[in-house]
Computed example of a mutant assay.
Amino acid sequence: MARRRKLYEGKAKVLYEGPEPGTLIQYFKDDATAFNNEKQGTITGKGVLNNRISEHLMTKLAEIGIPTHFVRRLNMREQLVREVEIIPVEIVVRNVAAGSIAKRFGIEEGTVLPRSIIEYYYKSDELGDPMVAEEHITAFGWATTQDIDDIIALSLRVNDFLTGLFIGVGLRLVDFKLEFGRYYTEDTLQIVLADEISPDNCRLWDVETNEKLDKDRFRRDLGGEREAYQEVARRLGVLPEAGPMDLKGPKAIQ
């Protein structure tokens, strides 16, 4: 097994140094968390499924000109990605009222919003990922006005494309979270889509029944989490033939 230096471990993924400068290996775990890590558990095979789903969606987005950090999938649980400087702001795009926005404004869950809403959250587990405004983002130097303009434009393009893609397989894209990073080359700087796109950070409902096929099943103790993720992968045509087999990541060296 390859020995790679572990650079970072988050709630759902581990990042190792890549085989070439400027690359990383992103390993998908089965760990599941909710409510700022207050609830923890495991969804067997989730890492395998999310790796395949995110690979498929990132590839499709690249085909329409969305720049991403994704390079290629390496195996069942790992993918090669470009090393980027992550902007510490999570972008949430909402099409249908669900989760926190329904609670905050007393909107019945499932209400279609009159237009897509973009919200910003500061990436800080210690602070509970507080919602912020563009003024906070620029005042604290997390991103420039031009960065924000690029992020908004990319987020809306991603939303338009994914909404259509999911509708095509009988799924409603209720809302989703995106992360972006700065990708540096010798003479250019580009804002690119990073992290992952999967049922971990998308709310996906069946268009006919409104059955939840995402991490809300874990958040709300609905059960059937693994089957829900498998159903999303099946509809997208990326369910691993061998099933969500286990695969250990590279042995980390400190």
Rank of each mutant, 00 (worst) to 15 (best):
T185C: 11
G141P: 13
L193K: 05
Y184M: 15
G22H: 14
N50V: 06
E231Q: 10
G237W: 09
G22M: 14
R234D: 07
L239T: 06
I86T: 14
K123Q: 10
A98S: 15
I137Q: 02
Q230V: 09
K11T: 09
G110A: 09
I152P: 00
L61V: 04
Y120V: 06
P130E: 03
Q190N: 05
E186C: 06
E17S: 11
N50G: 05
I101E: 03
P199F: 14
E109T: 14
D246S: 08
L213Q: 04
Y120N: 03
R235S: 14
V93T: 12
L154F: 01
F176V: 02
E186N: 13
K60A: 14
A12K: 03
V169M: 06
Y16D: 02
G65F: 02
P240L: 07
Y16L: 03
E119P: 01
A242D: 15
R82A: 05
V112W: 02
Y184N: 14
Y16T: 04
R72S: 13
D150E: 13
D129G: 08
Y16F: 15
A34H: 13
F28Q: 10
R104E: 00
R115S: 13
E126K: 15
T44Y: 02
A97T: 11
V174F: 02
P244D: 08
R3P: 00
E85K: 14
G45K: 12
K123R: 12
F180P: 10
I25A: 04
G243P: 07
L162F: 03
S155Y: 01
T138G: 01
V232I: 04
K39E: 00
F35N: 09
V48W: 02
R104V: 00
D129R: 07
L80T: 11
G141W: 04
K6A: 07
C202D: 09
R235C: 14
G223Y: 10
E20S: 13
R226W: 00
T59S: 15
A32G: 05
R219P: 04
V232C: 02
L165D: 01
V92Q: 12
E38W: 07
A97P: 07
P67M: 05
A12V: 13
L171F: 05
N37S: 12
V48N: 15
G47W: 01
R77K: 12
R217C: 10
F180R: 12
E85T: 15
I107N: 08
V93N: 10
P250L: 11
I107H: 04
I118F: 04
R220G: 01
S54A: 12
